[in-house]
Amino acid sequence: MKALLIARRELSGYLRTLSGYVVIAVILALNGLFFNAYALGGASKRSAEVLSQFFYYSSGFTIVASVFISMRLLAEERQTGTLPLLYSSPLRDRDIVLGKFLAGLAFLSLYVLCTLYMPVLVLVNGKVSFGHVAAGYLGLLLLGSASLAVGTFGSALARNQLLAAITSAVMLVALILCWLLARITEQPLSDVFSAMSLWNQHFPPFQSGLIHVRDVVYYLVVTYVALFAATRVLEARRWR
């Protein structure tokens, strides 16, 4: 499958250049600092509460990591002039987008995997339900996947990586802030905005160890729609 070929090359690109490691290292350090200062700090808490706070902070850092990881996906190809290679090869545009996204997701998973030491620290000093950890990590991956897909769309739209990061960040912030719109609008609009919000309604259940099908479906739908839009952008670019 051609998408896997593209994914493999892209992933090796991440692993061979310093920028990918720098992104992971910086975000991991910040995540660790927040974990230490806020999740572990303050009054004594139950392990489940510490874990819930860990997922709370990690969700934010996962979104930030997604923006930085996805910004290069398609914008870099455009910037360095390698897009004609993909365009002139017997590939579908969806293969290009899917391959890029999968590589980004694999690299993001590497980051998420690196955060595992924090729940392990909780386990050492307390009692942790593995179900809670698994649900939280599933949530992080789904949230990461949706954010990364939005980032891929931003990367397809933008001329360079910086613009890609800005575009993606704006779109993600808009999605997150939907819950504010839900507060100031009336039904049924408020329900729509609430359901659209990237974090407010859909992530907290994962944070406390609960998996709801509607939340899983929400993140998968966002991923699909954003990747579909990115594919459309690539197709449209052939006209220009």
């Binding site: 070929l5 002039g81 090869s89 017997p90």
Partner: peptide, 26 residues
């Protein structure tokens, strides 16, 4: 197709790059 700017991935070796393109093109 060779565009006016050669579409090259800087971080790959020549052999790896050509193998990647060959696989991409079937």
């Amino acid at each position: 197709y060779l565009p006016d700017v050669p579409p090259l991935y800087e971080e790959m070796t020549v052999g790896e790059y050509l193998a990647y393109v060959a696989r991409l093109r079937g």
